[in-house]
Simulated assay, not measured.
Amino acid sequence: MSSTSASDGLYPYHPSHVLPAVFSALIGISFLWHIYQNFRYKFWSVTFWMSWGGAVFTIGWITRCISSYNTSNVDLYIVQTVFIYAGPPIYSASAYNILGRLLYYLPMHAPLHPGRVTIAFVYMGAAVEALTAAGASTMASNTTDLAAYQNGGTLISAALVLQAVVEGLVVSVICMVHFRTKRVAHSTPPNVQRLCITLYGTSFLVILRCICRAVESFTIYSSILSCAEGNCSPILTHEWYLYSFEAAPMVLFTYWLNIMHPGICLPRQNKRYLDLDCKTERLGPGWVDRRSKWQTFVDPFDLSGMLSGQPNHESFWLLPEKWPVADGSFAQGTASNVSGLTNKSVNNGQTMPSSELV
């Protein structure tokens, strides 16, 4: 990696051959680890996006490694730019799914329907992904057209700002759930505590990445003409910015979610919830909305119910005697998503078979 401003082909510096290979290996290992853990915990419905994001991000860095030896190849440059930019928003979609599953697990503390919270964040993430892909492809394919290149940078800037806003909303929901759980039980269950800390940390890494990438993008926007004259900002002519503020945070993100995999902390079933004693887990009916389909379509987040102080969902957790005790407890460390490791628990003298929990 060069520290000079000398350019090489499509790059405003001499790209490193070693670092893309190193990060390709690191991200690829994490990607394979995610696949293994998804099979182990059968958690594909929640953390599928980690595997998809890992595939996209790994392809981006492998292509960058190849591109570093073919610095004038436009197609390779476009692919590595688009895929490296596209990976992080896909990773974030997995965090949104994890948050949704946490809300299903703690329905009494969910501010809105858990499924709709997830869908809202995923749709916002999709908007980020669309803007990112459009901006990255425009920039990469118009390195000699300053106006088009600047337009691509504008799209990237908008995507980064939007993603930072979404992550801020995610953190606010996590804080709300974390606070409410601690207020009720006076201490947060270990599995919830662990998951909240993980989501705080991964969101911080994404926000850090967004801020640094936004600074880079706005630098491109403000100094595009001077850069064309050979006076580029150091942010654009030093490759280490990319590895320090794009690659490194996302590598930490993926390994953090591997080490603290949500399949260790949460059940696969979205009808399984934590009782108000923060120890017992029960098999409830899931989130039940009393409104008609047209009402839920018009007001998907039940804003009318929240404003009136009378939400339209069933507070099934207030009648724990109606719902059977689940097999083991993730809150107490006696349950597992791994086949054969789930402990049996007794409810009114009857054992809940593991097959009923799947």
Rank of each mutant, 00 (worst) to 15 (best):
G87N: 09
I259Q: 09
H178A: 05
L242N: 03
T198Y: 06
I119C: 07
H113Y: 00
H34W: 00
I78V: 14
D75N: 08
N231R: 15
A126M: 14
S3T: 13
S7F: 00
L26C: 13
D327E: 13
L155K: 07
N343H: 10
W256S: 09
G53A: 04
A247G: 13
S354F: 02
W256F: 00
A134N: 00
S222N: 12
M176Y: 13
R183N: 08
S292V: 10
I156V: 14
G230S: 12
F179T: 15
K344I: 03
P262W: 04
F245E: 09
S345Y: 06
H238L: 14
N191T: 01
D145S: 12
V173N: 04
I259K: 10
C196F: 12
S5R: 07
G168N: 01
M108V: 00
Y104E: 03
T154H: 14
T143K: 15
Y13S: 10
T81W: 00
P320G: 13
D277Y: 04
W256Q: 06
N38E: 01
A110Q: 03
N38K: 01
I35V: 14
S203D: 09
L76T: 02
N312M: 07
G328K: 00
I27A: 01
A335S: 15
N258Q: 06
S223V: 03
R116P: 00
A164W: 06
Q269F: 04
E281P: 05
L307Q: 12
Y241R: 09
V192S: 06
I197N: 08
T138P: 05
K182H: 15
Q163L: 09
E216D: 12
L102M: 11
P15D: 13
D8T: 15
H238I: 13
C232K: 12
S16Q: 08
C278W: 05
V325D: 01
E356R: 09
I78D: 04
A126W: 10
P324C: 02
R290T: 04
D8A: 15
R180I: 14
G53P: 02
F57E: 04
V166S: 09
A95N: 00
T138D: 05
L236C: 11
I224Y: 09
G60A: 03
R40I: 01
V74R: 01
V82N: 00
P114R: 02
R101A: 06
R116Q: 03
I174G: 04
I98H: 07
A214T: 13
H261C: 10
P189A: 05
S157Y: 06
G60S: 01
D302K: 01
A93Y: 04
S7N: 11
F179M: 12
L195Y: 06
R101H: 05
K42D: 11
